[in-house]
Design a protein around this nucleic acid. Structure first.
Length: 423
RNA sequence: GGACAGGUGGCCGAGUGGUUGAAGGCGUCAGUCUCGAAAACUGAAGUACCCGUGAGGGUAUCGCGAGUUCGAAUCUCGCCCUGUCCGCCA
């Protein structure tokens, strides 16, 4: 959600930001609506002032036993105009809010230009892709051959884009979640949270999934939504609250299932576990002071990278270009893990600084320790990591020529000391 | 799901359709006092928006949304949430 005041003050800059997102200018329409609405509000409030004075006068006159018919007639005469102005104010407000709510966040200045993933900039690489003495397989071949990953039966009971994991791989999902949560809570100070997986409209609006992206979501028959990421419930934890500055930053992490309809991605990643309707993810969310959100963003990304490093999985860090960022982000780092079976780097984490964008939607502010005037917090979210894709990466990077899988050392304590899968 | 009872400012808690943004208490902040603190006393303080260069003025807001009324925290309706009991249930 955008701030009207800042658009009034810097309309050209606002439109420049939209242009970087590939959108036409909107400030003209917004400011026209804003001006018209404020005119209506001002006139309405003047009438209300008069109405309140007169009504008060009626009460006083009555208590004195004086006649009130003349005053009542005067108030009654204002009713039509008041109703018209109220309707106008509401209509203009709805159009204005609808417009403001539909526009994505503006990219930070250091975000590169670009319309799609080809505009993203590689910042750094970590780890060296292993040299295989054989042709590395893709994760679904490995998993199915092991008999621990079953897409056929998942389709039987649920349909496409679901997986059944069994045995050591089912356990690996549990192990990975515990491993990741331990790292974030113990090494990075995040507080572990178990949030609801079903949320209401307001929460989905707060983080920006609604009103524009409802087709990407699953909806329950009683009108709730299945979370597409724990970012939604975690970030909305502070909705409608005014926090103490001293409480910042708030850092939360949660392991949850995530549900996405994947409408519009038909044909992409149809095989395997890369793109599923349901997947597990450990998410991090930080609620930060505006002055500290850039540092918090780096810190959060570091927490996600640490998981990959501990698992010894090669990856690269991408700075997303303006056109490839999500709706609410002003700056995003993607972590892409090396998948030898695909011979490609694939996204395994996305860490975004949303600035004030979500805070304004959720009405999350903080009270400065010094000075007056409440300010919007900055919100950040990042995967740490997508558990299913982490399993994919482990299968492909740790596969042996006989199809067995070595368990990464860091994970062994979480898997009862298991060193090899499939032997 | 059914039956009751509730939802008031940071918290607790009054509130009769009429000059109530809302008594009182607690807590918070500032000041007086003090070497300092406590106590006491004095004062300040919700949120959003509009007008105004400013000082300042105004509107809305008592769970949310409609309605009745010249006027609604107070009356009516719908919804949401909380508590208690019953039913069902992991």
């Amino acid at each position: 959600m955008h701030d009207l005041k800042s658009i009034r003050e810097a309309a050209a800059e606002f439109d420049r930001g939209l242009a970087r997102r590939g959108l036409p200018p909107h400030s003209g329409r917004i400011l026209a609506l804003d001006a018209e609405r404020r005119g209506a509000q001002t006139e309405l409030q003047d009438i209300q002032t008069r109405r309140n004075d007169l009504s008060r006068g009626i009460g006083i006159a009555k208590s004195k036993g004086e006649p009130v018919e003349a005053i009542m007639a005067e108030v009654a005469a204002m009713k039509d105009r008041m109703a018209a102005l109220e309707a106008l104010d509401r209509r203009l407000g709805e159009e204005l809010d609808g417009l403001l709510a539909s526009l994505p966040n503006l990219p930070a200045s250091e975000v590169p230009d670009g319309t799609d993933e080809h505009g993203n900039v590689e910042l750094r690489r970590w780890g060296n892709p292993r040299n295989f003495a054989f042709a590395p397989k893709q994760h679904f071949d490995l998993g199915e051959t092991l008999g621990l990953m079953d897409f056929g039966r998942a389709a039987k009971i649920s349909g496409a884009r679901f997986t059944v994991l069994k045995g050591a791989l089912a356990r690996m999902e549990r192990a990975l979640s515990a491993f990741m949560l331990d790292s974030h809570t113990i090494d990075f100070g995040y507080t572990e949270v178990v949030p609801p997986a079903l949320v209401n409209d307001a929460a989905m609006f707060g983080t920006g999934q609604l009103p524009k992206f409802s087709e990407d979501l699953f909806r329950t028959t009683d009108g709730r939504w299945l979370i597409p990421t724990a970012e939604v419930p975690l970030t909305n934890l502070t909705a409608d609250e005014i926090l103490d500055e001293a409480a910042l930053p708030l850092r939360w992490t949660a392991f949850t299932p995530c549900f996405r309809s994947e409408a519009g991605s038909a044909g992409r990643d149809t095989r395997g576990m890369i793109r599923q309707h349901q997947f597990s993810k450990v998410e991090m969310v930080s609620i930060a002071h505006p002055d500290q959100s850039d540092a918090e963003h780096e810190r959060m990304t570091k927490a996600a990278e640490t998981i990959l490093q501990k698992l010894n999985l090669p990856y690269r860090v991408m700075l997303l270009c303006a056109g490839d960022m999500g709706f609410g982000a002003r700056k995003t780092f993607d972590l892409e893990v090396w998948l030898p079976g695909q011979q490609a780097y694939r996204e395994i984490s996305s860490c975004s600084n949303c600035g004030e964008f979500q805070a304004r939607r959720m009405k999350t502010r903080f009270r400065p320790t010094e000075g007056k005037g409440n300010r919007n917090v900055h919100t950040l979210n990042g995967s740490g990591l997508a558990v299913g894709r982490t399993m994919v990466a482990i299968l492909e990077n740790y596969q042996q020529d006989n199809g067995t899988i070595e368990v990464p050392e860091a994970l062994r304590p979480y898997m009862g000391g298991l060193e090899m899968i499939g032997v």
